[in-house]
Simulated assay, not measured.
Amino acid sequence: MHLRMYDMYSSGGSNSSFKKLIFFEEKLVIETYLIGYKLEGEAVLFFVRTDGAISFSGIVDCFCTVENDKVTEILKKNKVDKLDFICWTHPDFDHSKGLKDIIDMYASEKTSIWIPEGIDAKEITCSQEVKKLFEYLKECTTNIVSEYNVYSVSDRKDMMFYNSVCFQKDMNRYPLEIISYAPNSKIIRKQNYMDQFIKNDRSIFFVLALGDVRIFLTGDVEDDTLEKIPSNYFGNHVHIMKIPHHGSDSSVKMLDLGWNECEVACSTVYRKGSNNLPLSNVMEEYDKRTQFLMCTGKSDKNNENENYGIIKIETDILAHTFSTQMEGNAEYWSA
C-alpha cells in the first residue's frame, strides 16, 4: 500500500558544511524496521538509500532469542558490513540482548555509539547480558588498537555533530538530523546523589529528521521525563512514532508535545510476569491522531503463531510517499 505524506517541512539548500556529502541522482529513501518479540524485546533498524544503495545505516537497541535473531538477519540480507550509528537507549535486558555481538561485528572506528549520560557511573542491578555490554563498551572506549567512538546523551544534543551527513541532488540538500531530547540531566544527577538508578529515566528519546520526514524513536522514556520537555515543542506532524515504553500508561505525555498528525505509530509488546503491554486505552489515544496504528504483536495474543513481529516502513523522501509491510505477528492494531 502506497500513501501520500504531508509536506510540512522545507529541505533545501543550506550552506552549512558537513563531514560527509553524498550525491544522488534520483531516489532518496529511508527504510525503518521495528522489530519486536512475542514476550519481550525490541530493536529498530534504519537505512538511508540513495539510488538504491545503502548510504547510512543505524540501529537503536537490540534483542534476539535462541530461535530468532532478526536484527542480524536483516543486516545480512541487506549486505550491511558496518553500521554508521548505534544507540543503546537504556540498560534493560529487553533492549540489550545481542547488542554486544552487533557492536563487535558491525562497529568500526567510524561508527558513532551513543549511550545515556551517567549510565555507567556506578554499579547497578542489571542482567549479566547488560553487565557484559557495560564492560565491552569500556573496552571499546579505552582500547588503543581499535578505539571506538562511544558518546553519551542527555538533554537536547545533536547526535550527528561528530559525523554530519548531507544528501544532495542537484542544488537541493537533505541533511540527516538526529536530535536527542532525553534523558534529562537534572533527573539523572538527582538520582545519582540519592544513590538511585531508575533505568527508564535514563532512556534516550531522539527525533530523526530527513527532508519532510520526522521519526520519533523513544526507547522506554516515561512521563516524568517527557513532562520536562516544553509542551507544544514539536511541529504538528510526525511520520513515524515508536510509542514509548511498549504502550504503557506511564508514557502518555508524548501526546502533549504538540504533534497532532502521525502517519504510522507502532508499539512493541511486553508480556513478562503480570504485564500485558500495550494497553488498549493507551493505543486508543494514539489511534485518535494516527493514520495507521500498528503493533509487533496481535491485540489478542492467543492468535499469535510466530515468536516475533516486524513492521517495515519504506519512505520516499522526494515523492512524499510511503509503504508498510508486516511480518510474523505484526498487525494493524484493533482494540
Rank of each mutant, 00 (worst) to 15 (best):
Tyr6Ser: 13
Asn305Gln: 08
Gly258Thr: 10
Lys242Ile: 11
Gly297Ile: 03
Asp223Asn: 15
Asn192Met: 14
Asp104Cys: 03
Lys301Ser: 11
Asp249Ser: 12
Val282Asp: 10
Val269Arg: 04
Ile178Thr: 02
Glu261Gln: 10
Ser251Trp: 00
Cys166Thr: 10
Phe63Pro: 01
Gly211Glu: 00
Tyr332Arg: 07
Gly118Tyr: 04
Gly297Thr: 03
Thr321His: 00
Glu261Asp: 10
Thr141Trp: 03
Ile86Asp: 08
Asp195Cys: 12
Asp104Glu: 14
His90Met: 07
Pro91Cys: 06
Thr65Val: 06
Gly118Pro: 01
Val269Ser: 15
Val207His: 03
Ser17Ile: 12
Asn307Cys: 06
Thr125Ser: 13
Cys62Tyr: 02
Thr321Gly: 01
Cys166Ile: 02
Ile179Trp: 02
Ser299Lys: 03
Leu217Arg: 04
Phe206Asn: 01
Gln128Asn: 09
Asp51Val: 02
Asp155Phe: 05
Pro183Gly: 10
Lys110Asn: 14
Ile103Trp: 01
His246Met: 04
Lys242Met: 11
Leu208Ala: 11
Thr324Asn: 03
Tyr106Leu: 05
Glu117Trp: 08
Tyr308Gln: 04
Ile310Asn: 05
Lys19Ala: 14
Gln128Arg: 06
Asn149Ile: 02
Ile144Ser: 14
Ile124Asn: 11
Ser146Gly: 05
Phe93Ser: 07
Ile113Tyr: 12
Glu304Ala: 02
Met160Ala: 09
Thr32Ala: 04
Leu277Cys: 13
Pro175Ala: 09
Ile22Arg: 13
Met8Gln: 11
Cys262Lys: 00
Tyr6Val: 08
Asn275His: 15
Lys312Asp: 04
Ile198Asp: 13
Thr268Pro: 00
Phe24Trp: 04
Thr268Val: 07
Ile240Ser: 03
Glu25Ile: 03
Lys228Thr: 15
Thr141Arg: 15
Asn260Ser: 10
Asn302Val: 00
Asn78Gln: 09
Asn200Pro: 07
Ile188Arg: 12
Leu21Tyr: 09
Ile178Cys: 13
Gln291Pro: 00
Lys100Ser: 09
Asn260Trp: 00
Lys186Ile: 14
Glu314Leu: 07
Asp201Tyr: 09
Lys79Asn: 14
Leu279Phe: 13
Val48Ile: 15
Glu67Leu: 12
Lys190Asn: 15
Lys110Arg: 11
Glu284Phe: 07
Thr125Glu: 15
Thr125Phe: 06
Leu210Cys: 05
Phe85Ala: 05
Gly118Ser: 10
Met241Arg: 00
His95Leu: 11
Gly297Met: 05
Phe134Glu: 02
Lys27Ile: 00
Phe161Ile: 09
Ser250Asp: 12
Lys100His: 05
Lys298Phe: 07
Lys157Leu: 14
Ser10Ile: 08
Ser127Ile: 05
Ser248Glu: 03
Asp69Trp: 02
Gly297Gln: 01
Asn232Arg: 08
Phe134Trp: 10
Asp155Ala: 02
Ser152Ala: 08
Gly36Cys: 05
Pro116Glu: 12
Gln196Asp: 15
Asp316Ile: 05
Lys272Glu: 15
Val165Lys: 08
Val44Leu: 12
Glu109Asn: 13
Tyr6Asn: 14
Asn192Cys: 06
His95Glu: 06
Lys38Met: 06
Lys190Met: 11
Phe85Val: 03
Glu123Asp: 13
Pro230Ile: 04
Leu45Pro: 07
Pro278Ala: 12
Met5Ser: 08
Glu25Thr: 03
Arg202Thr: 14
Lys253Phe: 11
Asp220Gln: 14
Trp114Asp: 05
Arg271Thr: 11
Ile74Gly: 04
Glu42Ala: 13
Thr50Met: 07
Lys122Tyr: 09
